[in-house]
Simulated assay, not measured.
Amino acid sequence: MVKAGAAPHWRPRLAPAVVLRHDRVRGADLLVMPERVVVLTGHAGTVLGLCDGERDVRGIVGDLGARFPGSPVATDVPVFLGRMRAEGWLR
Rank of each mutant, 00 (worst) to 15 (best):
V2W: 02
K3F: 04
K3W: 13
A4V: 02
A4N: 09
G5I: 04
A6C: 05
A6Q: 08
P8A: 11
P8S: 14
H9Y: 01
W10D: 00
P12L: 04
P12W: 07
P12N: 09
R13K: 13
P16E: 11
L20R: 04
L20F: 02
R21D: 12
R21T: 08
H22M: 13
R24C: 00
R24W: 06
R26K: 06
G27C: 02
L31E: 04
V32L: 12
P34H: 14
P34W: 05
R36F: 06
V38M: 13
V39S: 04
V39P: 00
L40V: 09
T41G: 09
T41R: 07
H43F: 12
H43T: 15
A44V: 05
A44E: 01
T46R: 05
V47W: 12
V47T: 06
L48Q: 15
L48A: 08
G49W: 07
G49K: 11
L50V: 14
L50K: 12
C51Y: 01
D52K: 08
D52M: 11
D52G: 07
G53D: 08
G53W: 02
G53P: 01
E54R: 15
E54S: 15
E54M: 14
E54G: 05
R55K: 04
D56M: 01
D56L: 04
V57H: 03
V57R: 01
V57C: 01
R58P: 03
R58Q: 10
R58G: 12
R58H: 12
R58S: 15
G59F: 10
V61C: 06
V61T: 06
G62M: 15
D63F: 15
L64E: 02
L64G: 10
G65K: 15
A66Q: 08
R67Y: 04
R67A: 10
R67V: 12
F68Y: 10
P69A: 13
S71D: 11
S71W: 08
S71Y: 14
S71E: 13
S71P: 00
P72H: 15
P72Q: 10
P72C: 13
A74R: 09
A74S: 03
A74W: 12
T75W: 06
T75G: 07
D76C: 11
P78R: 02
P78H: 08
P78S: 09
P78G: 09
V79I: 05
F80P: 00
L81V: 02
L81G: 00
G82R: 06
M84S: 03
A86D: 15
E87A: 08
G88Y: 07
W89S: 12
W89R: 15
L90A: 09
R91T: 04
R91Q: 03
R91F: 13
